[in-house]
Amino acid sequence: MYEDSVPDTVRQFMAERDWQQFHTPENLAKSISIEAAELLECFQWGDADLESAKDELADVLTYCMLLADKLELDPDTIILEKLAKTREKYPVDKARGTSVKYDQL
């Protein structure tokens, strides 16, 4: 469907509308929070409105991608780095099957 990557397609979309001027790290972080709340609202009464959830999740992911781009961070790299830190906090032999915080393992 798209010849360019998702980030390139989003960058082009924003550039065509000259919206980058509004994309400060602060504004993008606010937008992530706002869209995450809208995503949560899809599940407010138990049964998910899947179509609305899909749209809101796309908004959250888009703003996250835009913030990473603005901060010149590679999403794959920062996710893998954070996963490595979390792996140390939650070793499999202690964390498997439990949801307690790492300092309670």
Rank of each mutant, 00 (worst) to 15 (best):
E72P: 10
D49K: 06
L73D: 10
N27M: 03
D8R: 13
C64E: 08
S33D: 06
E3C: 08
Q104C: 04
P7F: 13
A37M: 08
L83N: 11
K94T: 06
E26Q: 09
N27C: 00
A95F: 04
S33N: 07
Y63C: 09
Q104T: 03
W45F: 10
Y102I: 01
K89A: 10
D93P: 01
D93V: 10
E3I: 15
Y90P: 01
L71T: 09
L73W: 13
S31I: 01
S33V: 11
F43T: 02
E88M: 06
A95W: 06
E56V: 07
W19L: 14
K70M: 12
M14D: 09
V100P: 00
E3Y: 15
L80T: 11
L67M: 10
T77V: 15
E3G: 15
D76T: 11
A84L: 08
A84I: 05
D76P: 01
K101G: 03
L73Y: 11
L83R: 12
L80K: 14
K54R: 14
R87Q: 13
R17P: 00
Y63T: 04
W19G: 00
V6Y: 15
Q21F: 00
K82D: 12
D59K: 09
L57H: 09
D49W: 03
V6D: 13
D76L: 12
R11H: 12
S31Y: 01
S31E: 09
C64V: 12
K30N: 06
Q12S: 05
L40M: 07
E38L: 04
E72T: 15
D69R: 08
V10M: 10
N27Q: 06
S52Y: 04
F43N: 01
L66G: 07
